[in-house]
Design a protein around this nucleic acid. Structure first.
Lengths: 136, 136
DNA sequence: TTTTAACCTATCATTTTTATAGGGTAAATG
DNA sequence: CATTTACCCTATAAAAATGATAGGTTAAAA
């Protein structure tokens, strides 16, 4: 299940990408338009800024804006930033690998086998989708 | 992230499918072999029995056994039984559909759009994989 | 009738998720 | 240079989901 954090993050990014001018947009404006709690959205945008997706400006007329063009923002990167691993089990994760406690040999594990296939098919979608594909 | 419930359930099913004879196997034997808590596994096998994947026999020589051949047990069905929806958001779920609170129009939602694609690519894998593909 | 092993319900502990509180800091404005 | 604005940051708490345990019940075999 996709967390609200990731869902809201994607909606906010889409909102920014849909604007004609890439000038700072206030948290409040995004929160209101997308029905998101202001404070919760604030923490999400902060994460996106720290990961290099967004820039920010303080004070009057401040807000958040995209640091890249929508075409350059890949879903793999956004989801890994907000949601964490794309794989459904840590033992098949490319970026967040972890060994399973209960598995003596992961090459013999049936779940491992299946989840590699699921991961790869999900990756194929996410790698070929950018923020630009979500707009309009 | 795949729950332990689903993971353990898949491992147990694979364990049963890998046996030469389809005779009752005790919970304890599966639990020991797969490093799963006996009681937790018990509740999982109960779920699988109630959904028609497994049969059971009480008393001495009792245990659980497959009710279908491994070729007839599809990953879509097992995962929906143990994990719930395959989709990452309820608004794109085929079997567990729910409207989102925050979305006035889901056809205009960027997340909705993306998650339909992810769902479909995952489904393609799970629909084409049976328990038989996980064995040996 | 004793033993075995599944059946069933309730409960609890832990972790994760979601959300809120409240003050701090930088920038624009007049 | 004071005031307002709006992002920055840490801590915390409420809620939900997950993982695990406890303990007795029932059916079947020996």
């Amino acid at each position: 299940m996709l967390s609200k954090k990731t869902k809201y993050g994607l909606k906010a990014l889409t909102f920014l990408a849909n604007r004609k001018e890439n000038c700072p947009v206030q948290i409040s404006e995004i929160a209101k338009s997308e029905n998101i709690s202001h404070k919760f959205l604030e923490s999400i945008l902060l994460t996106l800024r720290k990961s290099g997706f967004l820039g920010s400006k303080k004070g009057k007329g401040g807000g958040y804006y995209l640091l890249k063009t929508p075409e350059e923002i890949f879903m793999t990167d956004v989801i890994r930033c907000l949601e964490g691993p794309i794989a459904m089990v840590p033992c098949v994760s490319l970026n967040f690998y972890e060994k399973c406690d209960d598995c003596p040999d992961e090459n013999a594990c049936s779940v491992h086998k299946l989840m590699i296939q699921v991961r790869d098919s999900t990756l194929q979608v996410l790698r070929n989708t950018t923020l630009a594909n979500l707009t309009q």
